[in-house]
Nucleic acid binder design. Structure first.
Lengths: 192, 192
DNA sequence: GTCTATAAAGCGATAGAC
DNA sequence: GTCTATCGCTTTATAGAC
């Protein structure tokens, strides 16, 4: 529990949780300082650009995580069907079965969207493209793969919204399971 | 263009658009005053509870609109299939083919969710229940109706998120059309 | 009912000691 | 690298004139 000399990389995940919980505007430097255990001096030492740079760092970390754990396997793993199944598992873990919101999706609906438009757009565009790639490699026709990948991303984001709105994580679990089956059927030569 | 003596009812829709555009935290009284053309004195005259009361009024108006235009027809219209088709049209109009976000969904992901939890929950719960009712009346089995209504609300919310994130309204249109077909198939005795 | 003036608090950001 | 003190600005909300 060495309190001394924090590293920027250690702070970013904490920032992510604060932004998730309070939103960008709601995450005041007071709250951020409380949750990270750092004073304003330290925070501005790591992030000279202030809150905007903090949020950008969080988005970059999220992007990197999804690239390594989701997008790349979807694009490159030898078994695309296993990669798709892995994606479902990763999503379920990452969003804690619906208890954790998608910060990128929340930003998309927020007034800060324009400020982080590139990162937000990239996150979803890459996700959709990587999943479409996996579906094609698993045997789906290109147009089917395109539609199905888009519907999958939509279903995940919508399930996070509804799950949180109704305060019911079973909504997310149910939706994700339906999505999993739909993807499995589309990549399985055997009919339902 | 009578500028004098505004009515509370005239102000609420304007407030809705401001909250959509700026979010709850981002909608400062300065911006609200600008967009409504009212000074702080007038705003606090209509809404003694300040921003919180303004947002509550907006949510109530949204709820009333959906109750009259969507939920009640789904529950009570003589032809449930026509009501479901009407819902799709109403949703497409209301969200301007994806250009307009769902304020209730945005609140669900925001830090203000807890403050408006009852309204947010009610909005989605009623939507899901009303659609399930229409599906049942149109011949769907109860469990199918329950699942399909939930998936429909999820798809609409997810499509709004993705459409806005990618800045591409065709995402919303495409998703809504797919949803329409899925609902039609589920209520049509003839196979696809 | 509408306005301006003002209060009181909180905000992001900076400066400088250590 | 971390802290505290402080600046300047914006915020919500109120008071009181008209």
């Amino acid at each position: 529990m060495a309190k001394t000399i924090a590293e920027r990389a250690d702070v970013v995940p904490l920032l992510g949780e604060v932004f998730r919980e309070y939103g960008f505007d709601g995450a005041s430097l007071a709250v951020i300082g409380e949750r990270t255990g750092l004073g304003k001096g330290s925070l501005y030492h790591f992030f000279p650009g202030g809150k905007e740079e903090m949020a950008a760092a969080v988005l970059q970390e999220i992007e990197a995580w999804f690239e390594a754990e989701v997008y790349r396997p979807l694009r490159e793993a030898p078994d695309p069907r296993a990669a798709i199944d892995g994606m479902i598992g990763a999503v379920d873990d990452y969003f804690r079965s619906g208890q954790r919101i998608c910060l990128v999706g929340a930003f998309a609906l927020d007034n800060v969207r324009d400020r982080f438009a590139t990162a937000v757009k990239g996150y979803f565009a890459e996700w959709r493209a990587a999943l479409a790639s996996a579906l094609e490699r698993a045997g789906s026709a290109p147009d089917i793969a395109r539609v199905l990948s888009e519907e999958t991303v939509i279903a995940i984001q919508g399930a996070l919204v509804l799950s949180r709105a109704l305060d019911d994580t079973t909504v997310f679990s149910r939706s994700l399971e339906t999505t999993r089956k739909r993807l499995a059927e589309a990549t399985n030569p055997a009919a339902p």
